[in-house]
Amino acid sequence: MSASIALHAGSLERQETASTREPAWVRVVLVSVALTFFSVFLLLPLGTVFAEGLRKGWGAYFDAMVNPDAWSAIKLTLLVAVIAVPLNLVFGLAASWAIAKFEFRGKRVLITLIDLPFSVSPVISGLIYVLMFGAQGWFGPWFYEHDIKIIFAVPGIVLATIFVTFPFVARELIPLMEAQGSEEEEAAVVLGASGWQVFRYTTLPNIKWGLLYGVILCNARAMGEFGAVSVVSGHIRGQTNTMPLHVEILYNEYNYAAAFAVASLLAVLAIITLGLKTLVERQTRRQLQDIDTPSGE
């Protein structure tokens, strides 16, 4: 949701003239306020994660990474992201195609339902799957009899992750596709292109950066989700612990340096994500400008 709008952001800058510029002291004050807030609220937590992780030196830092339980947590986290992100990607494409290219009743409600996981408390996001697939839940007994494990196993963790990352790709693509309109696609249809060809050669090139942006956000959330996954994981060491859960476990074992070491790995992933995002933003902006200029809207 933030994403759909954030798209246009980035380091947009304007040329100011004297009449639209604030006095120097106002500028200095505003920039100082922003920088102070930035340092205290964003840089300091980030720095703390690394500083605490390295408190016992680099040796301990790398030991925390190569520990078998940490490895299995890293592998599980990647596995979950690899399953959840593509599923939400396909859904995002289908949903945005239906919503942006067609008019139908109940559109707002549908969009709101797609958004819902964004504002549902992570605690509830986990709980709903326990209610569905837990041994006392709706489908739990059936799965139990057929020896299929959903919660306290990888499928449950994947489901909870899909839920919390559900809106990201769709919410990214809907406004983008709406802004682009459907004239190009309609022209392609008139020229005899099949549905798949329209999508592949007309739509996809237009949305590819927005799509990538949504995937990056989706992936960031997928790897970092804590609350919802914690409810369905069961916390079995070396089996159902993702990286954020492994951080919590180490922290609970008084192994603070190792906890922050693994946390710093997650922070590095977050920073890489933000770096990629900045790059993609630049591309998207360029693309949007390309659309805006010729159509003259």
Binding site: L42, L46, L217, R221, P244, E248, A267, I271
Partner: peptide
């Protein structure tokens, strides 16, 4: 965007 990308537990 860091608060968005950083896991909440961290």
């Amino acid at each position: 965007d860091l608060p968005f990308a950083l896991p909440t537990a961290v």
